[in-house]
């Protein structure tokens, strides 16, 4: 697919919000910038035809995550700074730059975006799901069919992780601990 204005704008929004999040010194401002970043991501998922991911991102990424972060600074502290932005340390920037360059060298070997012959698309697992999901599960949404039926154990594992995280949060925040 060629780069459309809509997608270029959304990518720009996401990158600018990400950079703003990194550079703002004030934690509350960074959280707000991060919420905008998540919202941009949710819109990008819609453009990339992933409505399920977009809904989850908007509800969890922009909603629950911002709420958790805000609750954290409400219970702890929002340090006040004289400086508006973070000062950039060249050594770290160099390390991250090297990391980005090394990752960037892999880009030319990736398939072009939207190519029907890309390995993920032109692969028998994808083809099997798309051809058989409705006949076997009677669920029209292939994502739901894969999530709940074909990869149900993955989803069970995910539920286990959420449960374990809930218990961990309770244990950590309990003042006396288990006695």
């Amino acid at each position: 697919m060629s780069l459309t204005f809509l997608e270029a704008g959304l990518l720009g929004l996401v990158l600018v919000c990400g950079l703003t999040t990194a550079l703002l010194k004030d934690v509350l401002s960074a959280i707000i910038a991060f919420a905008a970043y998540s919202l941009g991501m949710a819109m990008l998922w819609v453009v990339l035809r992933a409505p399920d991911v977009a809904l989850t991102e908007a509800a969890i990424g922009a909603g629950v995550m911002s709420l958790l972060l805000l609750l954290t600074i409400a219970r702890t502290v929002r340090p006040s700074h004289k400086a508006f932005t973070e000062s950039i340390r060249l050594r770290t920037a160099g390390v991250v730059g090297a990391f980005v360059l090394v990752l960037g060298t892999t880009i030319p070997s990736l398939p072009a975006i939207g190519s029907p012959r890309a390995s993920v698309i032109d692969y028998r697992v994808t083809e099997y799901y798309l051809a058989n999901a409705y006949a076997q599960t009677e669920v029209k949404n292939a994502v739901t069919a894969v999530l709940a039926a074909y990869r149900g154990f993955d989803t069970l594992g995910e539920a286990t992780v959420v449960f374990a995280a809930g218990i961990a949060v309770l244990v950590v925040l309990r003042k006396e601990g288990f006695t």
Binding site: I60, V143, D154
Partner: peptide
Amino acid sequence: VSPLPHVLILTAIVVGVSLTAV
């Protein structure tokens, strides 16, 4: 579009929130 990566990412988003909460 291929549904499989979408499923993996749905799982990853929820696991990511759990990680953040802890």
